[in-house]
Computed example of a mutant assay.
Amino acid sequence: MKNILYAVTVTVTLACASLCGPAAAADREWIDYKRLLEITRLDKFYAAPPAARDKVRLLGTVQPNNAAIAPQDIVFTVVRGAQVKRITVDREGRFDPAIDPAWARDNPKVLTNMPPGEKARFSFAAEPIVPPGTRFGYAALMAGVRQSNALVKEQGGMMRFLMPTFSGIELRYAPGQGASARIVSARGEAIVSADAQGALRLKLDERLASTNAEVILSHVPQSVDLLAE
């Protein structure tokens, strides 16, 4: 899945202790949960009311400075009393912080299996939540674009000037799949096809969104990303 990273990148030393090496180490105490949200900028996202962020999904991202450490080998562990929650990382460095309101309130410790002294870059990735299936309203498909722009404006603070304006979505398919989107509106029909790499780009059109246009996809996409201007 392709995902564009947004926000100022923060470099964090994964603290302390003895010898450092590229191999994953045993779990050790790292930071508290609130700090994890701060360095990924997800604290701003979760500060918004749920109804203002229900059409977009934000993921934390981590990229070790040491190329010998594969992102997918990193695990973060939240420990809250007897409750232990593992947070895994994918090949592209993305992870879901699996936020629980109680965690933000109680601020539990976060463990990491990264070796002491290693540095990593943290930021966040955004992706829209789209309706399931292959047939839905155009406005519903683009709801994540509108909501993402509103979140940047309302929650980004000074950082909003460093963030892009989102202009549409990109549906990702396997190359050569021949995927397409048919948009049916009062103006007639339009066909948009994926390119040779499997990317099908749809720009936000306010007129289509306001006139109850319909989108019919030839295939269910592998992933959906935000397009930035």
Rank of each mutant, 00 (worst) to 15 (best):
R53M: 06
P132E: 00
I183M: 08
I99Y: 05
N66E: 01
R172V: 12
L204S: 11
V220A: 15
L162P: 06
A181Q: 08
Q197S: 04
V220M: 14
S218I: 13
N113E: 03
T112L: 08
P128T: 00
P97Q: 12
M1K: 11
E189H: 06
A24Q: 06
R41S: 12
R105W: 09
V10S: 05
A194R: 02
L42F: 06
R94P: 13
G198P: 00
K119P: 05
F124G: 03
Q83I: 11
L5C: 14
R160N: 06
V130M: 01
A52M: 04
V152H: 01
L141S: 04
I183V: 11
A139L: 08
E170D: 04
G198W: 00
L200C: 00
C20N: 06
A228D: 11
V220N: 10
D225G: 14
Q177S: 15
N65P: 00
W30C: 00
R146D: 12
P71H: 01
R105I: 14
M142L: 11
T112F: 05
A104R: 14
D96S: 02
D54A: 00
V130H: 00
A98E: 10
M163W: 09
L171A: 02
T112I: 04
K55N: 02
P128Y: 00
L227G: 09
A190G: 07
V224N: 15
A17V: 02
I87C: 13
R94K: 07
G178A: 07
P115N: 09
F124C: 02
A213V: 15
Q83W: 15
N66T: 04
R207T: 12
P175E: 05
K109T: 14
A26I: 10
L217H: 09
I191D: 02
T211A: 09
D195R: 00
P164R: 13
S193Q: 06
V192F: 03
D43L: 15
V110A: 11
V10Y: 04
V184N: 11
F124V: 01
H219W: 14
E189D: 06
L208Y: 07
S185W: 12
G144E: 11
K85Y: 09
K2Y: 15
Q147F: 01
V79R: 13
A17H: 01
